[in-house]
């Protein structure tokens, strides 16, 4: 196996450990399932694809990431801490009074967070604004936006989907974390849209697909998206909500929940076992 891919897999495992820690130690329930489903994608972005400088979070030339499904923020908090944007001890303060790490991403309080989010449906339009501006400024920065497959039911997402090709933003990559679950149940039980990928294609987007837990595939798809010219790209990433912790996988109870001590220890043990096999 390619050494850098192995490094990424180890980092994804570390981030999963942090997410489980946050789920157990944060103030009240956080959202472990939604964070675990996009862990491999976020790892590939921060540790391979994105041009960023943790020592200079405001570096104008950097790539940008908007976590539009902001409730998954434990994954971003962990990735930013592991990158060195802030001390890892901050992870113990998630959701507490006085914390830099809010219940949903706050660009003023957390170094490395490029846009405030948490109210679903708004991130892609903001990503589009960033892409328009950075292109106009002649920067080579790429803008990434991670959305939930439930979140794309929001109308505003589609206003941005329609506008992006017209604005010629090929520096914009949207990633839909297709874990097939949302708050109140399975996405297809609430709105069954078999032609979702085709819809983006028909509206002018370059559509790519990948297995959102296969690191080689994630990296090569993100590279293809970055290098594609002329139109914005959307990656439909097939994922599992709760990926990496057996009892959280496919189980929407873990959308927002605190593990018991036994559950926490089991998750830690499973992730340690998985690490040895990497």
């Amino acid at each position: 196996m390619n050494e850098s891919i192995r490094e990424l897999k180890l980092m994804a495992n570390t981030i999963r450990r942090d997410i489980v820690d946050i789920a157990y130690k944060a103030q009240g329930p956080s959202h472990p399932g939604p964070a675990l489903s996009c862990t491999d994608i976020v790892t590939a972005l921060y540790f391979n694809i994105m041009k960023v400088d943790p020592a200079n979070p405001q570096w104008p030339e950097r790539d940008r990431l908007i976590l539009s499904k902001g409730h998954a923020c434990p994954v971003i908090y962990s990735a930013l801490a592991e990158k060195g944007y802030f001390p890892k001890e901050w992870l113990e303060t998630v959701r507490r009074v006085g914390s830099h790490l809010q219940g949903h991403p706050d660009m003023k309080k957390t170094p490395g967070v490029d846009m405030t989010s948490g109210s679903l449906g708004n991130g892609l339009a903001a990503a589009l604004g960033m892409a328009v501006y950075l292109k106009h400024e002649g920067k080579s920065s790429q803008v990434y936006c991670i959305l939930g497959d439930g979140e794309i039911q929001e109308g505003l997402v589609w206003e941005a989907v329609l506008a992006a090709p017209a604005l010629g933003c090929d520096n914009l990559t949207a990633i839909v974390d297709c874990n097939h679950l949302q708050s109140c149940g399975a996405v297809p039980d609430i709105q069954d849209v078999p032609g979702m990928a085709r819809a983006w294609e028909d509206l002018g987007w370059n559509v790519l697909r990948c297995n959102g837990h296969n690191m080689e595939e994630i990296v090569s798809t993100l590279e293809a998206a970055r290098d594609f010219r002329g139109r914005p790209t959307v990656i439909m990433a097939d994922t599992v909500k709760g990926k990496g912790v057996s009892y959280m996988e496919f189980n929407n109870d873990w959308h927002q929940k605190v593990p018991t001590k036994e559950q926490y220890e089991l998750a830690v043990q499973e992730l340690e076992e998985a690490r040895i096999c990497l």
Binding site: A26, Q102, H104, G118, S119
Partner: peptide, 8 residues
């Protein structure tokens, strides 16, 4: 909207 923060 407590632990969720200002957005909620």
């Amino acid at each position: 909207g407590n632990i969720e923060g200002v957005t909620h």
